[in-house]
Amino acid sequence: MTGLAFASVPLYDLFCKATGYDGTPRVGTAPMASADTASAKALRVHFDTNVAPNLTWRFQPEVTSVDAVPGETKTVFFKVTNTGSKPATGIAAFNVQPGLMGSYFVKVECFCFSEHTLQPGESADYPLVFYVDKGLRKDPDIGDLGEMTLSYTYFASRNGSPQVAAEGKGTGAGTRTNF
Rank of each mutant, 00 (worst) to 15 (best):
T171R: 04
D125G: 14
G3E: 03
D141N: 14
K138W: 04
T153R: 04
F6Q: 01
H46C: 15
A165L: 07
P70R: 11
D125A: 14
H116L: 07
F111E: 01
P25F: 08
V69I: 13
R58V: 04
T81C: 02
R26L: 15
T117N: 02
Q119E: 15
V9D: 04
E147H: 09
E109F: 08
A92H: 13
N178P: 00
G170L: 08
I91E: 01
V9C: 04
A68I: 11
G102M: 11
A173G: 12
F15G: 05
L128G: 00
M101T: 07
P162C: 11
V80N: 01
V66Q: 08
R58N: 05
T19M: 05
D67V: 12
G160P: 02
G172P: 10
G135Q: 11
G23N: 08
T37N: 07
D13F: 07
V69S: 05
D48Q: 07
D141C: 11
Y131Q: 13
L11E: 10
H46S: 11
F15H: 11
G160E: 04
F130R: 05
C110I: 15
D125F: 15
K41D: 15
K107W: 09
G174R: 03
L55C: 00
A124R: 13
S39P: 03
F59N: 02
D48W: 11
V76I: 15
R137I: 14
V66D: 04
Y154Q: 08
G135D: 12
M1G: 01
P162V: 14
T117E: 01
G99Y: 08
L43H: 03
Y104P: 05
M101P: 14
T149H: 03
E72I: 05
V164G: 00
G172I: 06
V51R: 02
F111A: 01
P87R: 00
F77D: 08
N82H: 07
S114I: 07
A38Q: 15
L100K: 14
F94A: 08
E167R: 13
T75C: 00
A42K: 10
F15Q: 09
T24R: 04
P87Y: 00
T83V: 08
V45S: 06
Q97H: 15
T64L: 15
K17D: 03
Y154I: 12
N178S: 07
V132G: 02
K79T: 08
P31S: 08
K107F: 13
G99R: 15
E62M: 10
Q119Y: 04
L118A: 02
T37D: 07
E167F: 12
F78D: 01
I142N: 10
T24P: 02
A165Q: 07
S123L: 02
T75K: 02
V76P: 02
E109T: 11
T29G: 13
T49Q: 00
K86C: 09
H46N: 15
T175M: 04
P10R: 10
D22F: 11
D141H: 05
F105H: 13
G135F: 15
G160A: 07
S114T: 14
T29S: 09
G174K: 06
F179A: 09
A18N: 10
C110G: 14
Y126R: 12
A18W: 05
T175R: 06
N95C: 13
C110P: 06
